[in-house]
Simulated scan of single mutants.
Amino acid sequence: MSAWSSRTIRARPFVKVTVATCISPPTRSNPCRRPNPRSRKELLMDVVGWTATAVVVLVLLAAAAVGVRSIPDIRRYLKMRQM
């Protein structure tokens, strides 16, 4: 038998929330924790991933803004080439 069990609490109709509860009081050798807590490295990798995604989105938006802003210059250059 494990040190934790789960019980279901009805918060709202058709919504189930599972809460971990200790069967026995926590000890040094058997603390009552979630079954698989996220490590610090996993949280750090999440932050790195979201940061990298945000940087890529900002670069793409900046490139699109530069492209849209330079459309009149491109048209003027193409007119000069046709002369």
Score class of each variant (00 low, 15 high):
5 S>D: 06
43 L>E: 11
49 G>I: 02
81 R>Q: 11
11 A>T: 04
50 W>T: 09
66 V>Y: 03
4 W>S: 00
32 C>D: 03
8 T>Q: 10
76 R>K: 15
8 T>V: 12
42 E>L: 12
55 V>P: 00
9 I>E: 06
81 R>G: 03
80 M>E: 14
79 K>L: 09
67 G>S: 09
9 I>K: 04
18 T>F: 05
69 R>K: 08
20 A>L: 12
54 A>P: 00
43 L>W: 11
31 P>E: 10
56 V>L: 10
11 A>M: 02
1 M>W: 06
26 P>S: 14
3 A>F: 06
44 L>G: 15
47 V>G: 06
7 R>E: 14
67 G>E: 09
13 P>F: 06
28 R>F: 14
56 V>C: 03
51 T>A: 12
26 P>Q: 14
73 D>E: 10
8 T>I: 11
28 R>G: 07
36 N>D: 11
77 Y>G: 12
23 I>W: 00
14 F>D: 01
77 Y>P: 00
78 L>I: 02
79 K>A: 10
23 I>S: 01
48 V>H: 08
37 P>H: 07
30 N>Q: 10
77 Y>H: 14
12 R>Q: 08
29 S>E: 15
38 R>C: 04
62 A>G: 14
39 S>L: 05
39 S>C: 08
19 V>W: 06
33 R>F: 06
30 N>R: 11
13 P>T: 06
59 V>I: 12
70 S>V: 05
56 V>G: 02
22 C>Q: 01
74 I>A: 04
34 R>P: 00
25 P>R: 10
6 S>Q: 15
